[in-house]
Amino acid sequence: MTVRQWISDDTKETWIYGILGFLLFLMVWQMACVFTDFGTIFPSPGVSIRTFFMAFIEPIGRYTLLGHISISLKRVLIGYGLSSVAGIIIGLLMGYSKMAHAIIYPIFCIVRPIPGIAWIPLAILWIGIGESTIYFIIFMGGFSQMVMNTMDGAQHISPELVGVAKVLGAKENQIFRKIVLPSSVPYIFTGLQTSLSTSWMAVLAAEMITAREGAGWLILSGMQTGRIENNVIGMISIGAVGLLLAALLRETERRLCIWTVRSR
């Protein structure tokens, strides 16, 4: 058997089993709806798929599905963007300067273990209900992970490479720019990935509690109005968008960090 045939057989198998698994899943779902009480509270696959496509045209609440998703997306991008920038700056500062570490770290330690979502009640009391509260919650959701990862990167600089740069004539400020920054990049990307997923969590929770639009609201309203199919389509679309964002980030990382690719 040639290599080529073997590969194509393998991909064929992947497809067959993938489709088989998916069909099995749909079948169990459908059977559960038809033969058990499950159907009385949960929509069948057919209903869910129909609702999904209808939601692109017919608004649920104030917006169509696309509208809700883009509102959530906008919120995440703003909150996540701000927290990433702030997290990277503070992380680099604490990783690079021992003095900054000594000053900021103890205070940061108080904030660090508090999940972003736990800030929701405080944020509402401080800022009231509104867009900025949601941004704040998303910000807090990703911030500490961003700081921790960046700091880790800036602390784990190879002393050898710093020495190399110094022998080649680099000054202190050049070392920060040319050694510390690039060697922290992989760590920063790790932080960006994890904080992206917590940002998604945070936006969902924030919208469930304080907003009247967005994917989180869509999911919660499904529960409140007894239309679980809205719930299901909200989850599917938020999953899809989350997947897309993560893939985008991975692609950016791949392009920026070609040098981490191990080929030896």
């Binding site: 050898e160 110094k166 022998v167 050049q174 990049v185």
Partner: peptide
């Protein structure tokens, strides 16, 4: 750190995030 002294290291000690060109031109660039 005297610019008249250069060094080749035991381990490769290249900057992994720079290309061959980037590594070689590092000194003049700084």
């Amino acid at each position: 750190f005297d610019p008249r002294v250069g060094m080749v290291y035991q381990t490769t000690a290249l900057f992994p995030w720079l290309t061959v060109m980037g590594n070689v031109e590092f000194g003049p660039k700084t």
